[in-house]
Nucleic acid binder design. Structure first.
Length: 571
DNA sequence: GCCGTTTTCGGCCCGACTGTTTTCAGTCG
C-alpha cells in the first residue's frame, strides 16, 4: 500500500546511502524532497494524478519520475540498486552520534566494517589503533556511542517536553542574571515532536546562566561546554542546548536557532542576492551590522515582513513575506470561550463556580460544559443532579454557560460510527435551563471532537470527517493528544474551508498545562486565522439550536456557513 | 538533484566545537 510516509522514508534512505558514497549535494536534495512529501496534506497519488508533483518544493524532474515509479510499482529501482551497493549497516553506523558519512565510509573501505556489530569487534580487536585520526579519546567516544545506540526514539511529543522546557526556563530566570530567555528550535515553531531543546539567553553575566542551567537536578550529563554554548543530556535522555548571546545579537540568534533549516537556507541565499550576509550574530553588509537585536529587524533588513515561527518551513512563507501578505494567525487573545469542557464525574457545584470564574478571568464570554452523553463503556451518563442544577441556577456573571451533549444524540453517519468516539451538540442554557435531553436538530451540531489517532494522521482517514463537517456545519477539534488533529490534519481541514475548535485547557491541573499553547501552535502551523476558529467567534455566531425551528432563519442569516469563513480570503 | 525578477549552468548557509591535527577535517545544528 503506497503512502506518503513510506515514499519519504525511501528518499531519506537514498540520501543516507548517497552520503556514504560521498555525494556532495544530492543527499540534501533527497532529504528536502522527503520533508516536503511528509508535510503534504494529501496523498501523493492524488497530486500525481493532477500532474502536479513538480509543484512540491524540492521535487524536480528526477524525483517526480521516481515518485511515479513508486506509485506504479511500490518501489524505486535506483533505491534498490543503492541498497545492493552499500551494506545497510553503514546507515546505522552514520546515525551514531559523532559518526558521520566520511567516517562510516572510511571504516567500510579501510577496515571492511559494514555495521555497528563489526565496528564493536574491530575496536575490541584493536584494529582502529594507529588509524589516522583515531586516538584514544575518539575510540572511547565510539565505544560509548555503540553502547548507547539502542536508545529510545529520537523525537518526543511536544506535550511531553513542554513541562520540562518551562521548568528549565523558570530555573534560569530565578537563579541567573538574565535579560531574556526563550526556547527556540522546533519547540518554538510548535512542531508536533521535538528532537532537542534550544534555549537562548542574553546576560551580563553568562557564567551564572551556565551554572544555573547545568546544576539543575534534571541534568544528567554535560556533553559539551564552550564560551557561548553548552550541551547537556537530561536524565530522560533529552538533549538541551543553551546559548548565551549579546543583547544586540538576540534577534538574529533567535531567528537562526528557531529555524527551520530550509527556511534559514532560503533566507541566506536571499540575503546573498541582496549583498547581505545573515548569521546568528546579525545581518551584515560587509563588516557593518545592519540588524540583529530583534527578529523584526532581521526580517526587515531582508525586505521581509516578520514571519510567525510556526510558518517557518520554507513552504512559501518567505515569498509571501516579500509581498507583505503574511497571514495574521489565530492568537490566544482571539479565543472567546470553550465548547468542549469536561468536568470530572464527581464534579460539585463548587467545581462549576471555579471553572466559570477561571473563564471569566480570562475574558471569555461562553463556556460549553458537557452535561451528558455516552461514556467510554457505551453507557449513557449525566453530570450529578446537584451540579447540573448549579449550571442552571448560577449567580449572574458575564459567562454564558452552554450545555453540551455528546454523541448518541444525533446518529453518526455509518462510515464514521466505527471510526470515532463522538461529535458534539451544544445548546445554550437560555432561560436558565440546561439541556437535559439530546438535541436532535442537525443545525445545532457545532463540534467534532476526538476524530481518533488512526484518522488524524492520514489524509484519507480524515476525508469522511471533512465531508461530515461540511454537511452539518460542524467544526473539528485541533490539539495535543492522539485523538485530536495535528497541524497536518488541521491544514487539510482549513483547506476544505472548515473551522476548528481549540482546546483552552480551562480547569487544567496546573499552569504548565500545555493543552492551550500546543493546540494554538498546531492551528497556527496550519495557517488558521481567528475567522477559521469556532471558539474565536462571538456566542451569537455559534450555531446553537436553542429556541427551536422558529429561530432558524434568523440564526442562519447571522451565522455564515463555516465553509466560507476560512476560505475565500487569501490565506 | 534542485533551482532561477541578475542564471537553464553553476551555484548550493555558516559558525561552534572536538579531537587531532602543527593548520584542519569532521560533525552538528
Amino acid at each position: 500500500m503506497a503512502s506518503n510516509a513510506e515514499a519519504a522514508e525511501i528518499f531519506r534512505t537514498i540520501a543516507d546511502l548517497l552520503d556514504v558514497l560521498g555525494e556532495k549535494f544530492k543527499p540534501e536534495a533527497y532529504r528536502r524532497a522527503a520533508r516536503s512529501i511528509e508535510s503534504l496534506t494529501e496523498d501523493l497519488a492524488a497530486v500525481a494524478a493532477r500532474k502536479e508533483l513538480r509543484a512540491v518544493p524540492g521535487v524536480g524532474e528526477a524525483i517526480a519520475e521516481k515518485i511515479e515509479e513508486y506509485l506504479r510499482t511500490g518501489t524505486v529501482l535506483y533505491y534498490e540498486r543503492l541498497k545492493r551497493e552499500v551494506p545497510p549497516g553503514l546507515v546505522e553506523l552514520m546515525r551514531l552520534p559523532g559518526l558521520g558519512p566520511k567516517t562510516a565510509r572510511r571504516f567500510w573501505v579501510e577496515l571492511g566494517v559494514e555495521g555497528p556489530n563489526e565496528l564493536r569487534d574491530a575496536i575490541a580487536a584493536g584494529r582502529l589503533d594507529g588509524m589516522k585520526g583515531f586516538a584514544t579519546k575518539k575510540i572511547e567516544q565510539l565505544r560509548t556511542a555503540l553502547a548507547t545506540a539502542a536508545a529510545g526514539p529520537a523525537r518526543r511529543a511536544i506535550a511531553d517536553v513542554y513541562p520540562v522546557a518551562h521548568e528549565l526556563l523558570r530555573t534560569i530566570r530565578e537563579r541567573a542574571t538574565v535579560d531574556r530567555v526563550e526556547v527556540a528550535g522546533s519547540f518554538r515553531r510548535g512542531r508536533e515532536t521535538v528532537g532537542d531543546l534550544d534555549i537562548l539567553a542574553t546576560s551580563k553575566d553568562p557564567p551564572t546562566v551556565f551554572e544555573a542551567f547545568s546544576s539543575h537536578p534534571l541534568v544528567a550529563e554535560v556533553k559539551m561546554r564552550g564560551e557561548t554554548k553548552e550541551t547537556v543530556l537530561l536524565s530522560g535522555g533529552l538533549q538541551v542546548d543553551l546559548r548565551v548571546v549579546k543583547p544586540e545579537e538576540f534577534g538574529a540568534a533567535l531567528q537562526y536557532f528557531t529555524g527551520s533549516k530550509d527556511h534559514n537556507v532560503h533566507l541566506r541565499s536571499l540575503a546573498r542576492d541582496r549583498g547581505l550576509k545573515v548569521n546568528e550574530y546579525g545581518v551584515f553588509r560587509g563588516e557593518e551590522r545592519v540588524a540583529g537585536a530583534s527578529e523584526e529587524e532581521v526580517y526587515a533588513a531582508l525586505g521581509l515582513a516578520w514571519i510567525p515561527p510556526e510558518l517557518r518551513e520554507d513552504r512559501g512563507e518567505i515569498e509571501a513575506a516579500a509581498r507583505g501578505v503574511v497571514p495574521s494567525l489565530v492568537t490566544e487573545r482571539d479565543l472567546r470561550g470553550e465548547l468542549h469542557l469536561h468536568l470530572p464525574a464527581d464534579a460539585t457545584p463548587d467545581t462549576v463556580d471555579r471553572v466559570v470564574a477561571e473563564a471569566e478571568s480570562r475574558g471569555y464570554s461562553y463556556l460549553g460544559i458537557v452535561v451528558g452523553g455516552v461514556g467510554p463503556d457505551g453507557a449513557p451518563w449525566r453530570l450529578p443532579e446537584a451540579t447540573r442544577s448549579r449550571l442552571a441556577h448560577r449567580p449572574s456573571s458575564r459567562i454564558r454557560v452552554l450545555g453540551a451533549v455528546e454523541a448518541g444524540s444525533t446518529p453518526l453517519p455509518p462510515e464514521l460510527s466505527s471510526l470515532a468516539h463522538e461529535y458534539r451538540i451544544v445548546r445554550p442554557s437560555s432561560s436558565g435551563s440546561v439541556a437535559k435531553t439530546p438535541v436532535e436538530d442537525p443545525a445545532s451540531t457545532v463540534l467534532v471532537a476526538h476524530v481518533g489517532s488512526a484518522v488524524a494522521s492520514e489524509a484519507a482517514g480524515l476525508a469522511p470527517w471533512v465531508d461530515f463537517a461540511r454537511r452539518t456545519g460542524a467544526a473539528i477539534e485541533v490539539g495535543p493528544g492522539p485523538e485530536r488533529l495535528d497541524s497536518v490534519g488541521a491544514r487539510q481541514v482549513r483547506e476544505a474551508g472548515i473551522a476548528v475548535h481549540l482546546p483552552t485547557g480551562l480547569g487544567g491541573a496546573d499552569e504548565d498545562d500545555p493543552t492551550r499553547a500546543i493546540g494554538l501552535g498546531f492551528a497556527r502551523r496550519a495557517g488558521i486565522r481567528a475567522d477559521g476558529t469556532l471558539n474565536a467567534r462571538p456566542v451569537e455566531a455559534l450555531r446553537i439550536g436553542a429556541d427551536g425551528p422558529s429561530r432558524a432563519p434568523t440564526g442562519r442569516s447571522r451565522v455564515p456557513p463555516r465553509g466560507r469563513s476560512a476560505k475565500g480570503r487569501p490565506a
